[in-house]
């Protein structure tokens, strides 16, 4: 599987048009339904190759796109989400410098 290829599991004659937000492999238990004691096994079953991680991010991106950006009449929500997300991200990467601006020594 190189760059620009479809996932290996995707079969056009069965799955129809390609949906970039969809996982075409064998579905595992959804994360929200995983019990705490099954969590270790669930994490061990995950494919942690760089391609799979990139694919997971890509699917999340497209799910967000399909839900908030691509519908016909969207409001300001996706822009505010992007704004908030980028604010949080840059706050996190600058957190080491922000720490020096603390006013109180003891809490």
């Amino acid at each position: 599987m190189g760059f620009g290829d479809y996932p290996k599991e995707y079969n056009p004659s069965v799955h129809g048009p390609y949906d970039p937000a969809r996982f075409y492999g064998k579905p595992d238990t959804p994360f929200a339904q995983v019990k705490i004691n099954e969590l270790g096994g669930w994490l061990a079953r995950r494919n942690k190759s760089p391609q799979a991680i990139a694919g997971a991010f890509s699917r999340a991106w497209w799910r967000w796109q399909h839900k908030y950006v691509q519908p016909k009449k969207v409001g300001i929500a996706p822009f505010l989400q992007l704004l908030t997300g980028s604010m949080a991200f840059f706050y996190m990467i600058n957190y080491g410098k922000m720490k020096h601006h603390r006013n109180y020594k003891y809490h």
């Binding site: 129809g16 409001g75 929500a77 989400q81 908030t84």
Partner: peptide, 16 residues
């Protein structure tokens, strides 16, 4: 694997 359709935008509160 139904054909994907263009849905309505997701609902949000407080703007986002």
């Amino acid at each position: 694997f139904p054909r994907p359709v263009r849905g309505e935008p997701g609902k949000v509160r407080l703007g986002f």
